[in-house]
């Protein structure tokens, strides 16, 4: 009673979501590059490419729904379908954050750069690493690596706070003329919005890790304190 056709379809669904993950990662990497290098063309490319990622999400939902309705999956197969539906939703939201960053970058590239903050560099690096690791644990279906992703979330939050603090400092610092102060405030606020997007990508990568843990182990680790889960409490 091997269900060859169903398992073939399920494998295809997994491959589609992994493809979507690769495209989402590229969009996010490009969005960061566009911001750092003040590259309007690249930013526009990320914005234009989002439609394609949205389309994959719709396709994944449609195929997952069909498998649920027609194949009545059980156990790990069931978790694989539910988990991949949720993961494709997280990926689509990550791609939206990439668009948001790119839109801010289009604005910022019209002005001279702000003084760079070290916290912003660290935040970009942390969120990039979190997304990469989330995708790697999805590819490998590695629940332990999935847990490691969410342990980085506190760092991302901390860096975001540091960016906020340093940019507030910058905004309230004396500037010689009112128009320069206005420009600086505008750029700072746009940059704060970018930092929020980066922080959200960290959150969404954490969610992907949690969905992977659900697929592999069948347990819901969402909203559980990391220490509890580690058995430290």
């Amino acid at each position: 009673m091997e269900r060859l056709h169903f398992h073939h379809e399920l494998e295809n669904l997994k491959i589609t979501v992994l493809n979507m993950a690769a495209q989402t990662r590229d969009a996010f990497e490009n969005a960061i590059s566009a911001y750092v290098r003040r590259d309007s063309d690249l930013a526009q490319q990320v914005i234009d490419g989002d439609r394609h990622i949205n389309q994959i999400e719709v396709d994944v939902d449609k195929r997952a729904l069909r498998l649920l309705a027609l194949e009545q999956p059980m156990a790990r197969d069931l978790r694989m379908i539910i988990g991949n539906m949720k993961i494709s939703n997280e990926l689509e939201r990550i791609a939206d954050q990439a668009v948001n960053i790119s839109e801010r970058s289009l604005f910022l590239s019209q002005y001279p750069p702000l003084e760079e903050t070290a916290a912003m560099d660290r935040l970009m690096e942390t969120s990039r690493t979190m997304l990469k690791q989330a995708i790697a644990c999805l590819r490998d279906l590695d629940a332990q690596a999935a847990r490691a992703v969410r342990k980085m979330d506190d760092q991302a939050d901390e860096h975001t706070l540091q960016v906020l603090k340093s940019l507030i400092e910058l905004m309230v610092a004396d500037a010689p003329a009112i128009d320069k102060r206005r420009d600086k405030t505008r750029r700072s606020i746009q940059t704060i919005i970018i930092s929020r997007c980066l922080e959200r990508v960290g959150d969404l990568s954490t969610n992907i890790g949690e969905h992977v843990a659900f697929i592999v182990e069948g347990i819901n680790i969402k909203h559980q304190k990391i220490q509890e889960e580690d058995g430290e409490i």
């Binding site: 269900r3 156990a75 197969d77």
Partner: peptide
């Protein structure tokens, strides 16, 4: 049916027998 303890059960209920 959602999280069987043994691989043999998993294989049976997911049709991998």
């Amino acid at each position: 049916f959602t999280r069987p303890g043994l691989q043999q059960t998993e294989d049976y209920i997911t049709g991998r027998f």
